[in-house]
């Protein structure tokens, strides 16, 4: 009994927190390495269709995105599918200029590897997508990628 009594009154020893910053820094570096910066605010709905035969887009810096879909804020912008380039809504006629700007932003050697990723909402009609594709063809951006989510494969 007396042994326990001696411990009483000393109070709990403080936990050593000197390694806490290290742990947090480790987490921080993990997130910095695995994630990418969000560059634009997407203003259109993006429910991607699913597909099984998807490929990864590996060179993030060589991809330019075109968002198409119903605006998120339907009260102001209506429910008709719209094209979004960078941060603003655009029309089909703005695409050649967009392609040129994207091309000028890259190194000369990398320009032919630029992929245009079409992030299109699944419920969009093909009409607007076809128009965009025609404009891309005219502007010489031939490499495109239909952005889709990867569907879990069954019975294969």
């Amino acid at each position: 009994m007396s042994r326990f009594k001696t411990k009483k009154g000393k109070g709990t020893p403080a936990i050593n927190t000197s390694s806490l910053p290290d742990i947090i820094f480790m987490l921080l570096f993990f997130f910095m390495v695995t994630t990418t910066m969000r560059e634009v605010t997407v203003r259109v709905q993006q429910r991607m269709p699913e597909a099984t035969e998807v490929q990864k887009l590996d060179k993030k810096s060589l991809v330019s995105f075109i968002y198409i879909g119903e605006p998120k804020n339907t009260k102001i912008f209506g429910t008709k599918a719209r094209i979004q380039l960078n941060d603003v809504f655009a029309s089909v006629d703005d695409i050649p200029e967009f392609v040129t700007k994207e091309r000028e932003a890259r190194d000369e050697a990398d320009r032919k590897f630029i992929t245009t990723s079409l992030k299109v909402d699944g419920n969009t009609k093909m009409g607007i997508v076809t128009d965009v594709k025609q404009e891309l063809r005219k502007s010489g951006a031939f490499k495109i990628n239909y952005s889709t989510r990867k569907k879990a494969q069954k019975n294969r």
Partner: peptide, 23 residues
């Protein structure tokens, strides 16, 4: 850490790659 959590995304871009024909 929180700053990076908020400003970054983790999704990997996947899709079907196609080549458009010249006009």
């Amino acid at each position: 850490l929180i700053f990076f959590l908020v400003t970054t995304t983790m999704d990997v871009d996947t899709g079907i790659t196609r080549k458009l024909p010249p006009p």
